[in-house]
Amino acid sequence: MGSATSDTPASAPTARGRKPLTDAAETGLKIVVVGGFGVGKTTLVRSVSEIRPLNTEEVMTQAGVGVDETDEVAGKTTTTVAFDFGRISLNDRMVLYLFGAPGQERFWFLWDRLFSGTLGAVVLVDTRRMDDSWYAIDRLEHHGTPFVVAVNRFDDDSARHSLDEIRQALALPEHVPLIDCDARVRTSGKHVLVTLVDHLYQLALAQESTP
């Protein structure tokens, strides 16, 4: 069969330093990091990932669903959306994938299709461009995907809004955790993830106790 790639060296899997999972790995989990351009999504993924963030893409129609997929191959209505991801081996059996993806309105068809079944989401906010976050928050609430909001503090952010001010500005309900972070710092990135999963745990506890 004609295909573009010719012979593949046996070392291909490790050519880019990709560390394989253990053979016992059986459960993949997903967390999504969403936010506006340049807010630090890739930086956050990189700071906690055990592999260098990898980039991949999906090709789909603008309409997203219910469109004849042959159109994609014909190349008439296709859109390519790139997103990056990192990985954390939680134990021998469980591996968590973190996806960094743009939060702008025109990318949401990607979210609905690719990120179903996620544990939850982190909305990364830059206080200098808070407008970029509204759509993501609105959409996650609508979708019923649990999330936390992390404020990535940039050095040249002179305003230093307090978390309370930010909560107000985002019209964020009291039950949604809101924290500060520095996406470049591993312990900070880890704290963001722990905050999210702890939040999910509280939600699951509440659900289990109401039959």
């Binding site: 954390i88 939680l90 079944g117 544990l119 019923g144 993830l193 999910l200 289990e208």
Partner: peptide, 21 residues
Amino acid sequence: LAQSAATHPDTALLQEVLHGL
């Protein structure tokens, strides 16, 4: 995990995730 956001994953799974993190 179910593909729907309607049900939360169970607490045992989340505890394992928290432990790993």
